[in-house]
Amino acid sequence: MQFVVEDTGSHLLITVGETRIDAAIATQFKDKLRAIVTKASKPVHLDLHNVDFMDSSGLGAVIAVRKALSERLPLVLQAVTPNVERVFRLTRMDSVFDIRSAIPEEVKRQ
């Protein structure tokens, strides 16, 4: 499980190194990220530009991370690829998260 955690001053930037957040890794993903964000005292930005696939167990893991972070702190999902954005849109979870789409250059980096 790969994460890069960086304190930018204004927020905690967590870049996910995995290309898939699926049933094979959802539990591990959830547990590791929860441990990081539970201690966070500033907004968290989750950079998902590497992630080109997410299923409902991955979605559940991201929701669990949102719930582990203090309610008063925003969780921003940034550089979200079209495939991942679809899961949030179809389940209407796009109304719960601040989702920022990947710009084409970020998708191409994959």
Partner: peptide
């Protein structure tokens, strides 16, 4: 879809909804 309440977000129950929707 599972009810989205601000208090307690559902973490599952999306799979068959997605299958039926798509």
């Amino acid at each position: 879809l599972p009810q989205i309440g601000s208090e307690d977000l559902p973490e599952g129950g999306f799979g068959w909804y997605l299958i039926q929707d798509l």
